[in-house]
Design a protein around this nucleic acid. Structure first.
Lengths: 344, 344
DNA sequence: CTGAAAGCGCTTACAG
DNA sequence: CTGAAAGCGCTTACAG
């Protein structure tokens, strides 16, 4: 650790001009500056030009705290996510950020691992809206956020009164399992996304889709074939180890996320089994690496879910629009990890 | 007889208590409330208790804009990153967020793809400090940020006047290439991280490390063996395709990120070559999936770089500490993708 | 230890 | 179309 010279040099004067400075220079009142700079009507063209010039000359930027305090608008939306380095969440966040940046809204980020961050309401009076990523309606946070008195949006779940964008997890999971069934599989395992403190909604829905598919095919579900795992590669590895050590191991596995599916594939290979000859695997997401693993999966548009939800939320904030809900399409992507079961 | 409170529409924000409400209820002045709630000295124990009780009863939370405006403190740090869904950046961001959350600072996130976001200074007067991820000192943003008049920190680069935490990219790359040389390789390729608009500093430094290693081993560098690629799996695939189509292809490749290295491995396999028998590959990062790919790599502590830098920056903000710089250790992780070159 | 009051830098009815 | 002024909700010297 090396001590360094202070960052501020004498050459960089943080001379911050106020609205009064601009007003003086442009020879108008501060009220007129405010109106002119924000493009409000009722400002003559030449006054506006004069104000603009003065503001540029002084390098003026309005103080966000002052204008928020005066107007009640924050131009900020809070985003609460349980993860940041999982594929789905990163992509969604990316979509949200892009739309917000374009709208010149700030994004304040809260990573909330236990679903209880909101007991302390860290963003009360700080944001114009909040976006929740995949928190189920019964998470403590949801109640807290609803009490904030600002528009709320959620991706991955549809919660009463919130804007939402999601995919149909039930139907998508059913499609995945149907693909396996169509291939001739009957003993189909599942790796369920699990999280310590919170129960998310997608895993629940994908679980339902799995059971529906089995039911429609007249296959008796076997609880031993359902195991849980953290949403990581390692989580997938451990879950697969459990499944493979079963006296009657599954001939196919539906894994609720691609990241876990990669772990599952790894364990399968290390066990000396071949995929798809001995056992089929289907994932969920269409992660950047799914192609590399030649992984059959259900593709979901993560970036677009975030972007679309951000648009909905912005409409609620700016136009007082009613919350809207949209379900985006998923797509079965058949690659090389699924095939008919081995001949008995 | 019974005065009715005006009906609040369902969407109306719930009544938010102000500091005056708390003051009234506790029978003190608002100044005392402010001091009591912030734990300032010179408040008697019982007054403080009374204020606390009142504040809790009213569910009071100070308006951030008002207190920022009055105090000049934002309790917010801005983070500028070129990516969010790349392993390194996600981990770093995670580390930063964790430290900031603990310190009850907000993190406002800016994804800046072209290094020019700061020409419009979106966070002037909005943050107490800013953190830059891997931007080189000559990026337009850096000048803009330096002019903000707040402490700045950077991870991945050491910039004059900024706090910084990084790894030694030159030495780490040299270690990687030395590993290859030690194995007997002489024709060693490199895949360089490339970005459209900005030239980052890590690629430059890793490039230097590569050349140093060759020079010390007396190996003449061959420009044809150096190719560029975007920091994605696909970027790695394309770069590898170039390298493999060379009349004299390399017997080993140093790839500047694990994500690209996974793409390189994919291309190698699809070309019908074997790794490491025909060609060795070494990455950089120790991505979650490096283990699954059995990838030899240089591990760098990404989360910790973010966390440590956040601590430095917080010290600058709160204690007016001088900017500090720290270099964290990397570690060569030898796995299965590197071996001696094939016998000629 | 506590209160009164100025002030932070804007926005926004309200007059004109 | 423009200005004067109140007010947003805090913090902080300054007195006492």
């Amino acid at each position: 650790m090396t001590p360094r010279t202070p960052a501020r040099s004498a050459s960089a004067p943080p001379a911050t001009a106020s609205i009064q400075d601009v007003a003086r220079l442009a020879n108008v009142s501060s009220g007129t500056v405010s109106r002119a700079l924000r493009g409000l009507p009722n400002v003559s063209a030449k006054t506006r030009a004069r104000v603009l010039a003065a503001s540029q000359e002084l390098n003026y930027i309005a103080s966000p705290s002052a204008s928020s305090l005066a107007s009640g608008r924050m131009s900020t939306v809070g985003v609460i996510t349980p993860f940041i380095s999982r594929w789905f969440f990163g992509e969604v966040l990316n979509g949200i950020e892009q739309v917000l940046q374009e709208a010149r809204f700030d994004l304040v980020l809260y990573i909330d691992t236990d679903g209880k961050l909101f007991e302390s309401l860290p963003m009360k009076r700080r944001v114009d809206a909040v976006i929740l990523l995949t928190l189920p309606s019964d998470a403590p946070d949801v109640a807290g956020v609803a009490n904030l008195g600002v528009p709320v949006g959620s991706v991955g779940v549809d919660i009463e009164g919130f804007a939402s964008v999601k995919v149909d997890d039930v139907a998508s999971a059913e499609t995945a399992v149907n693909h396996l069934i169509g291939l001739g599989h009957r003993r189909i395992g599942m790796v369920v996304l699990e999280h310590d403190e919170i129960e998310f909604s997608s895993p629940r829905d994908r679980d339902r889709g799995y059971h529906q598919a089995l039911a429609r095919a007249g296959i008796e579900p076997n609880p031993a074939l359902i195991v849980k795992g953290y949403s990581t590669v390692e989580g997938g590895e451990k879950a697969a180890a459990q499944l493979l050590s079963l006296p009657e191991r599954p001939t196919a596995i539906f894994v609720q996320s691609d990241e876990m599916a990669m772990g599952v594939l790894h364990t399968i290979r290390r066990t000396g089994l071949r995929c798809p000859e001995d056992i089929s695997v289907i994932g969920f997401d269409d992660h950047e690496l799914a192609r590399v693993f030649d992984l059959t999966t259900v593709a979901q548009p993560a970036f677009e879910q975030g972007a679309q939800l951000a648009r909905f939320v912005l409409d609620m904030v700016r136009e007082k629009a009613a919350p809207r809900a949209q379900v985006l399409e998923t797509q079965l992507v058949i690659r090389g990890t699924t095939a008919p079961p081995p001949a008995v």
